[in-house]
Design a binder for these strands. Structure first.
Length: 279
DNA sequence: ACCCAGGGCTGTT
DNA sequence: AACAGCCATGGG
């Protein structure tokens, strides 16, 4: 079905923004993107003039993808909160990253993805996740543009894998973290959906109890898995930005409750040569 | 060969 | 509480 999207919406930037790992431009078809989320998949084709072709019917678009892409929220308005005079670096980052949105991704998929992410670069994270999906997920799409795409494994399927099987997905020392998280979610000891009700502080507290989850991964889960847009994950790139561009501190109070969106602009910009630019 | 990556755990002060 | 080692693996 065809959709017109007037607000910020740049599929290539979202795909490269580091918040999602199963969202890719088709190599054989520029302008068409393959998006996998849990057990769902869609192709989105840029038609130009703010128009997009989704490879699903209206029912699935309204029931899932509209929310997934967070289309009810205006990211142009959020960008509008940035003062060019007060913070030219963030302003430049937001102009560079214009079109990025924070996807409403699944807490389970995000938890495992960001546990895997530690001390890996983004291509390596993607490769590990695809191996996991191929090993324990179900085939959901087969298409000449993308080959075979498998669903993200359920907690039960992942918990059933041996450490050796997990390890063969290039998880390295993270294999035991993934296994423990999968076992705890599968057993019900950890109920991610019930954590929706928690305050940001309580949510952080619960996440930090998980083996292999520290402050950074927890913040990624809070931002990308629970869509709480004020969470501000600090990885090596963001720390570099804070040290070199904000020696006197970043204005977290001023950008609440959207610090997480600002973080995405800074992350995307810094990884694409923004660190070399003058403040 | 080398350094780095969307860090966190563990043992030592 | 702070702090250093250490951890597996692949990308550039």
């Amino acid at each position: 079905m065809k959709i017109t999207i007037k607000d910020d919406f740049d599929l290539k930037k979202i795909a490269e923004s580091g918040q999602c790992f199963r969202f890719n431009e088709c190599e054989t078809e520029a302008g068409t993107f393959s998006v996998a989320a849990l057990d769902k998949h869609v192709f989105v084709k840029e038609l130009g003039n703010c128009e997009y072709e989704f490879s699903c019917d209206k029912k699935e678009f309204d029931g899932f993808w509209k929310s997934y892409f967070d289309l009810e929220l205006s990211y142009a308005d959020i960008r509008g909160r940035i003062s060019k005079k007060k913070d030219i670096y963030l302003y430049n980052a937001s102009e560079y990253g214009k079109g990025i949105r924070i996807l409403r991704q699944d807490p389970w998929e995000m938890l495992i993805s960001f546990i895997i992410s530690q001390r890996k670069n983004i291509p390596a994270i993607k490769a590990s996740i695809e191996k996991l999906c191929a090993m324990a997920g179900d085939l959901i799409v087969e298409d000449e543009r993308v080959g075979k795409i498998y669903s993200f494994p359920t907690p039960e399927k992942l918990a059933a894998l041996s450490l050796d099987k997990l390890s063969s997905c290039s998880l390295g020392y993270r294999d035991k973290y993934v296994k423990k998280a999968a076992e705890d979610v599968a057993s019900g000891l950890v109920d991610l959906s019930s954590w929706d009700k928690l305050s940001d502080e309580e949510l952080m507290e619960e996440l930090l109890k998980l083996f292999g989850v520290g402050v950074k991964v927890a913040n990624c889960e809070i931002l990308f898995g629970y869509h709480r847009l004020d969470a501000f994950p600090k990885d090596v790139w963001i720390n570099r930005v804070l040290e070199t561009k904000y020696p006197k501190g970043f204005d977290f109070e001023g950008y609440a409750p959207y610090n997480g969106v600002m973080q995405q602009y800074l992350f995307f910009y810094s990884r694409n040569d923004g660190l070399g630019k003058d403040k």
